[in-house]
């Protein structure tokens, strides 16, 4: 398994866990009325900033922990961090699909806003569209690595 393939798998898992946790937390806070009133968008902004913060930390920790575990399991004393032309091609392919998915999601969010949905929910759906695009990007990369493209 190449360095980039390992990164893609860890990134996909961490993204799903982090945004799964955020979705669970957001739905609970929304049900409690935390996002009601004049401070709704301010609170939304802070929750998203927290998400970005612990998302970055989770990715870094996940990559380090997985690298250590993988090195122990494979007994690889000299892991390679090489990124070659095929890795770059697979990344570009993943980005193309990810951007398309994200664009479609964001467009649907604007449609939801136009038909009167709560802006706080739409704002978070836009965020989830971006996350879903990132997840699609890494999923495409993992699939391409697995099928040996």
């Amino acid at each position: 398994m190449s360095h980039e393939e390992k990164n893609a798998i860890v990134s996909l898992i961490v993204t799903l866990v982090v945004f799964g946790y955020y979705g669970f937390r957001f739905s609970g806070l929304y049900a409690e009325g935390y996002f009601a009133g004049p401070d709704a968008m301010t609170r939304t902004g802070w929750e998203i900033l927290y998400l970005i913060g612990y998302g970055i930390i989770a990715q870094i920790i996940g990559q380090i922990v997985f690298a250590i575990i993988f090195a122990i399991i494979t007994n690889d004393r000299k892991p390679s961090f090489l990124i070659d032309e095929r890795d770059r091609m697979i990344t570009l392919r993943g980005v193309r699909y990810g951007y398309g998915f994200m664009g479609g999601g964001v467009t649907l969010c604007f449609l939801a806003l136009a038909i009167g949905w709560d802006p706080v929910i739409v704002f978070n759906l836009i965020l989830f569209s971006i996350a879903a695009g990132a997840a699609v990007e890494t999923l495409v990369k993992v699939v391409m690595y697995r099928i040996g493209a």
Partner: peptide, 22 residues
């Protein structure tokens, strides 16, 4: 040649076409 082993595997199986340089 400066690539990963997985890239060589993909090339041998004709699943990936290398660049001209490679």
């Amino acid at each position: 040649v400066g690539v990963t082993r997985q890239t060589i595997v993909a090339i041998e199986k004709a699943n990936y076409s290398p660049s001209l340089e490679l």
